[in-house]
Structures are given as structure tokens and as C-alpha cells.
Design a protein around this nucleic acid. Sequence first.
DNA 1: TCACCTATCACATTTGAAGGGG
DNA 2: ACCCCTTCAAATGTGATAGGTG
Length: 351
Amino acid sequence: MACGEGELSSLAKGDVEHLRGHLGDDPVSLTSHQGIEGIQVFLHETDLWTKFHAVTTEMIITKAGRRMFPSYKVRVSGLNPRAKYILLMDIVPVDTHRYKFADNKWCVSGKAEAAILGRLYVHPDSPGTGLHWMRQLVSFHKLKLTNNHLDPFGHIILNSMHKYQPRLHIIKADEKSGFGSSNTAFYTHSFPETVFIAVTSYQNHAITQLKIENNPFAKGFRGNEDLEMHRISQMPRFPYEQQHDGLPTCVGPTLTCERNQPLTCERNQPLTCERNQPLTCERNQALTCERHQPYGAEPACLQPCMFSSSRGGSDETDWSFYPECPVPQQRFPPGQQISGSLTYRPDSLDF
DNA sequence: TCACCTATCACATTTGAAGGGG
DNA sequence: ACCCCTTCAAATGTGATAGGTG
């Protein structure tokens, strides 16, 4: 058992272990308490959490430890201003399933790996007076998540592709109440919108976009229209047939590509997309077309993308789309079946 | 052997804290 | 004490690639 970065010198290891056993692992109950009444806890940036929750929040876990985003911040009221409290967090499994991301949604893929003994992250200001906790936002932004089962830094250890519920605990740091004993006064609260799935790389592109849009550190990945137009204008254009014998140039044009969305086309049905409408493909989603299948689109491409037949690109069945393509419609080579995944060209634009 | 899925790493970019100078 | 500037560690998602599994 270990604490997080905020481990306290005044908080003995044995005390924390007592607490660990005391807090239990029930992620379902929103609130439970013992010996503490009237506390209220409000999640900061609820709107942001709700946005993530709507598309199933993912949190990156790395060997070195990764912070949560959105970060876990709360506002607390109802504490005794003079009494001292310890605020801490833990993260417990929501269920006993392992998950996978398929068909643009999360689904159960098997049984969960054995749960790791939960670690606690004690807020660095602990123990603090009720007044201290109530007069400002309590932020757990320094909490880090890791998948390293031998992590020596005290980060919270999670399993990838498993679902978790963060929990906040408020513990009265009062010697008289027998801190760390079964009499310890505590209050526990879980916010359902903070449930997340731990991943080593993002699965759902919607989550990636939300992280980029809202996390200041990911600002470098935000799209910039002026920059995009400049880059498009600077992009080399080479006719498709010059690289692929007998094949017409390209199609088109207004394709904006986004991952993780299904892309299908029926026999003899043109695949079209409207101006500025994203044409989306799921990773490894098969795209099959019958012989002489027309593949049409409106002019004026905003995002170049590449269709590749295998991971990491292919030189055989790449179908690339460039802006200002002169040919309005693409016909696949006779008898050829195209399947694979849509990926970004290395020089494509971030969006 | 192969396809698929997941993990890891280096990279470019950005933030923000720390420290020095005026 | 204050402000401004510079430096640098930390944080971020990307994309290529490695590794595991069936």
C-alpha cells in the first residue's frame, strides 16, 4: 500500500492501510458516511465531465503515470471550519468486465483481470482545516494513473480497457475519534459522470477531440483554419494515375476524414459527401466496393486522407484524396475489391 | 504465418513554475 | 517588492513500430 504524491508525513502508513480496508470497494453507492453529517461536495466543471461521459470517458494510463483530464476538482461545504480533515481519492473498478472499442462503441469483451490492490491519493494539503478546504477549490490534478503494477511512485495503478469510478473521501483527522480505526469519521462520494475506461491510447476519436479542445497542453493539436488553408496550398499535388497505372486521378474533393466512424457504400451507389461534412471511417473498418463502383464527391477538398489496405500504409491499394481534383468521379479498377482502413496521410491536417 | 489488438516510444508543441536582472 | 524576460521540466496527443494472442 502506498499513497500518492500527496502522502503526508503526519499520516502514518498504517493509518492509511486502516483506511483502505475501511473504505471498501463499492463503486455503486454515490454517498456513504460515518460520523460526519451535512457535508456537500460539488464537482467542478460538471459540464465538461458530462461531455466526456456522453461519449464514454477514456483516461490514458502510462508506465510513467499520466494525469487525468478533465482533472478531478471539487468544492466542499458543510465541514466544521476548525476541525481538521484529510481529503483523499481512490479509483475502484466499476464491474468485473474487460472492454473493447468496436463499431464505434464500447462493449464487454471478457472478464476483468484481477483487480490491483487500490492505492489512495491523499491531497497534499491534508490534513487541513474545514475552513481551508471550503474556501477554495480542492484540486486533485496532480493525481497520476499508471499501468505499471510495480510502480514505485505511488501513482494509482489501473488495468487498461477496464472501467473505473473515482471516489472522494473526506476523513476527520481527529485523534479523539480514533483515526484509522473503525470509529474514524468519514464521508465518501462518487460522481457518476467521472466514470472512465483506462486506455493506453485513445480509442474513440470523439474523446481525442474533446481532450484536444479542452486541455491546454494539447493546444498544439488544435486546428487553425488559416494554417490549414496555407498547408493545403503548399501541399504537393500529383495526379493519381502517375503513380498507379491506368487509374484515374482522384475523387475528391470535399472529403474531410475522421476516424472511428463507419464508412460503407452499396453496390452501384455513389459515395458522396457534402461540403464540410465529415466522411468518417472506423479504424480497420472494411470498405468494400463492387467492380466499377462509382465513388463520387463534391469538389473542393478540405482534408486529404488516405485509404490503405493494411496498417501502416500500403503501396498497392492506396486511394488518396487531394484538394482541387479535376476528376469528379472515381471508378475502382475492374474486379478489384478494396478493403482496409482509412488513415491520415502523414502530412494531413490535424482537426 | 497472418491479422488483429494493445502497448510503448520518440517527437513537436505548449504550459507554467522558477530564477535572474533591472 | 515588483515586473519582465528567459529557461527548462512537465504535460499533451500523434504516429510508427513492437509485442502478444488466437
